[in-house]
Amino acid sequence: MKRISLSAVVVAAVMAALPMASQAAGGDDDVGSCGWGSKVWEGQVGLAPKVLAVTTNGTSGNQTFGITSGTSGCTQDGTVKSNWKLSSFIEDNKSKLARDMSRGSGETLEAVVQLIGVSEQDKAAFVQSARDNMARIFPSTEASTKDILAGLREVLASDDKLAGYVARI
């Protein structure tokens, strides 16, 4: 998990150095610049956190959003901005998404279907297409959200029925 954070920082630094591209509906998928997500897991492993968890349901504050906190990064008053929803969801559900996609069913997959806005009629085709092309959607061992989204776009683009959804990713 620490490696994902590091790569996210690197990506963010590179992105900052490049001229800003215009944002499409799902556009700028560098979710690492949001600054949350994978941090949920930092410091949680091992015996000590379990013992100490008795006294307070504490949070380091990274993954919670103030209700009237205004606009920052990917959130607005505590809710995720619509163009960040898909990428922030994938960022925190990668292995579950991989698992559900490989089975062709599951809650995480359903959520992605809803976030992309796949219609009822197209759902079966979408699920099958994703399942048949897992290697492209998850191109490497530690695929980043950016990679996954790019892979998903590629796979959908090559399918006539589903090509229309590329713009939503």
Partner: peptide
């Protein structure tokens, strides 16, 4: 929840009991 920062160890336990932390409401997916 309490915002505990990077506290660990006994101070974590003590502060939780004695009101040494600030709590706030927040939204989370």
């Amino acid at each position: 929840a309490a915002f505990t920062g990077n506290d660990g160890g006994l101070s974590f336990a003590y502060k939780g009991l004695a009101g040494g932390y600030i709590g706030r409401f927040s939204l989370t997916p």
